[in-house]
Write a protein that binds this DNA or RNA. Structure first.
Length: 212
DNA sequence: CATGGGATTGACT
DNA sequence: GTCAATCCCATGC
């Protein structure tokens, strides 16, 4: 797969967020098509970069085309693509994928959690968790990083070079039907409709947008 | 140095 | 629908 060049990300974050729909995210031979994104920009308070340059936001203010990976709620790693020129804090959050390559590996990573494996290993069947349906593999920002094996170590890495890479739209995804909606899970700037989803796609996270 | 708050998920009522 | 898990880091004293 030919990865998108850094210049692709050196544009207004809203444009990139829309254009990333239909593109492919790949990590170590496991991949999926982007079906949901959100845009974040330093000018609005829901963006981490709103507070300015700190150790945490260093990557956000860095060059475009890098991965911004951070820990959410102490548990999940969330993947973003840094956008706009260096010095401007902006990024696209990858919220959901339509799984395409390496589904067995995704099921393995998502099927048994550390907690269920460890704490519940009582007398009988230790591994008793259900195997998630393929719909649950990548239908959320924390799920897809787990399915692809993406962790905080990838923060700052180059999305054009890897190990996490993003490639252009392929056949079947050249002109996806995109619906806009309000962003999910935030408490500030909730009125901005900076969420982009593929209409009708099963792998879009909840809440599903109207018509999506 | 102490505190508080998440760009979430899964289990449970 | 409710709720807890769990860690990084921004903020304030």
């Amino acid at each position: 797969m030919q990865a998108l060049p850094p210049e692709f990300y050196d544009r207004p974050v809203l444009e990139v967020a829309r254009d990333l729909i239909g593109c492919t995210v790949e990590h170590r031979g496991v991949a999926g098509v982007v079906v949901e994104t959100e845009a974040y920009h330093e000018s609005e308070p829901a963006c981490h970069a709103f507070v300015g340059l700190t150790p945490r936001t260093r990557t956000l203010f860095g060059p475009p085309g890098r991965a911004y990976v951070y820990r959410s709620y102490g548990i999940h790693a969330l993947l973003n693509a840094v956008c706009e020129p260096e010095g401007v804090g902006a990024a696209v959050l990858i919220r959901a994928l339509d799984p395409t390559v390496g589904l067995e590996e995704m099921r393995a990573r998502r099927g048994v959690t550390a907690r269920s494996n460890g704490a519940r290993s009582g007398g009988r069947g230790a591994i008793d968790r259900h195997s998630p349906s393929d719909r649950d593999l990548c239908s959320g920002p924390g799920k897809l990083t787990q399915a692809l094996g993406i962790s905080l170590e990838q923060n700052g890495s180059d999305l054009s070079r890897g190990p996490v890479r993003i490639g252009p739209r392929t056949d079947g995804w050249l002109e996806p039907a995109v619906v806009e909606d309000a962003r999910v899970g935030i408490t500030k700037a909730v009125d901005l409709r900076w969420r982009f989803c593929v209409a009708g796609n099963r792998h879009v996270s909840r809440p599903r947008p109207p018509g999506g």
